[in-house]
Amino acid sequence: MPPDRASDPPRTTGALLPLRKPDAAPQETRLGDVDEWGRSERVRTIIRQAFGPLYRHWFRVEWEGLHKIPASGGALLVANHAGAIPVDAPVIMHGIEEELGRPVYGLADFLFRSLPFGGTLWARGGGVAAHPDNAYRLLHHQQQLVLVFPEGTKGTGKLYSDRYRLRRFGRGGFVEIAMRAGVPIVPITVLGSEEAMPVLARSTRLGRMLGLPYVPLTANMLLFGPLLGLVAYLPAKFKVRVLEPVYLDVPPDQERYPRSRVLDAAEEIRLRMQDSLFDMLRRRRSAWRG
């Protein structure tokens, strides 16, 4: 909105004068507080209040190196992803928002957008469809924190026997976005999401029929039934470690970046995260007590 209409360029005032008197009242009086990404601080606060007890008493989330997340400016947070219906995203978002007071936008598969009710709640709670343009705009124009799981559904669909073994990091798209946006990548490793909802088996064929990436069979479903098992997580102890931010030494806003450079950086980050996960596992005495 033009803040002051008198400041329109003079060349337009002759021929292109608006016909009706533009209304003088501010146009920004809104009934809701949903931003362009669909996020609502009001809904986000309700979610935080509801998730808080779970975060503190059920998952007993413990952070390490939270100060490494930039207090201002954009950054791409990259984490490992696990558990059929992953709870790691809300855990990371909740923790950072509570501790740093900064909003976190979680990128996720487009799948969410076609879910009635759940998809709307997901967007109001800070979820954004993982489109490169969306990520670039959030990081570069708006200097926000953006959380992405480069493993995608390959991470959440992996079996319990493969736990804490990182899958392929897509095609390194996340590195390219960070390069273009000129923001650091902050790797985060999470322990606990694998045990909170262990995947015993999965069917991609059944999933394809339902339009889902996979249909999992989880230990939770066996224990609590097929419906309650979707939301009843086991009380695994969550440990989250923030690794040193990676500053990509390339000029931002380039048309394209050398493929090898992108893939090398992605692989390097993946190896560092894998090392960190093994290190955290080495120190962990129990999956439930930490």
């Binding site: 209409r5 360029p9 337009t12 533009p22 209304d23 146009q27 009086t29």
Partner: peptide, 23 residues
């Protein structure tokens, strides 16, 4: 949603935002 910056960069000024138009 469409990005309207190209026309704005050409010098055009909107009198109404989306919210303003609805109101």
């Amino acid at each position: 949603g469409v990005d309207n910056t190209k026309l704005k960069h050409a010098g055009f000024r909107y009198n109404f935002t989306t919210a303003g138009a609805v109101r």
